[in-house]
Amino acid sequence: MDIAEKIISGDIRSVARLIRDIDDNVPGSREVLKDLYPSTGKAYVVGITGSPGVGKSTLVDQMVTHLRADGKTVGVLAVDPTSPFSGGAILGDRVRMQRHSMDEGVFIRSMATRGYFGGITQSTRSAIDVLDAMGKDCIIVETVGVGQDEIDIVQSADTTIIVLVPGMGDDVQALKAGILEIGNIFVINKADREGADRTVNDIRLMIEMDEKRYKDGWKPPILTAQAVFDKGIIEILDEIDKHRKHLESSAKIQSMRKYEKVRNDLSEMIKDKIIRDVFDEIINSGEFETTLQSIIKGETDPYTACDTIVSKKLKKGAA
């Protein structure tokens, strides 16, 4: 069996290793992804995002339990930011999901953003494909939402859940532009705390002020949950099902979504490849350093230097 076949047959070590190779940008991993692509597209992908500490991992943990009780297999990708200072990362989401680690039907993987742009990196997108190809029915992707990252996840998820906590209504006001655009379901977690109803109302109001956005017919529900106490989880899963049925209800929505997804995947992939193959190589080249020195000495200006370096690199072609 080659690696792709092993992955399709569900071999955990091959899956784990391939995700690592993707993350480390090992050239061979791309070849495997090409072979896996025809086996993707079957899993349902749920994105969960929200500010640090709102209870995303706890929610995911409970959702996994319920999905397993329904007989569904689950993949979890938990993405945490890479430290911009050291390049290292602490990936701590697994702590909340540890009870699933002995369950063969669950595969949990922690990933770091490793720089570049936003929370959903090319590696995460490819890792979704890998878990999809290995046959997981549902893939849950947890990202910490800070601005752009939240928007990124939408492109890769079929259903996007925004998690908030009581008292965050005011923040939502500030985040409105980003946050309300992308949520298919809103969950006010930690509803055991005071003010959950008010936050629900605040968000409902904001959604209703913007009716025209829901012309495709899905108006995001706003749910409350208490993830640590396993409350409200079934309702969330029900809404995910409803949203899925909504997406699948019309050929028009389906083909539009397919187009959007393929378009986004390909353009992100091109962007990623250009950064890795062109940008990184320029930055790490000796010529880059000498150019910096010439600018500092006043021998040239950054505009001219930029044009020269880029056109030279592009003419030579990327590796």
Binding site: R94, S101, M102
Partner: peptide, 24 residues
């Protein structure tokens, strides 16, 4: 500069090993 997967308290050796493999 390392990537650290932190998996918390009270685990059995079986759980530790399973996590290590999934996390490669």
């Amino acid at each position: 500069g390392f990537e650290v997967v932190y998996s918390g308290l009270h685990q059995t050796p079986e759980e530790v090993v399973q996590a290590a493999i999934q996390e490669d």
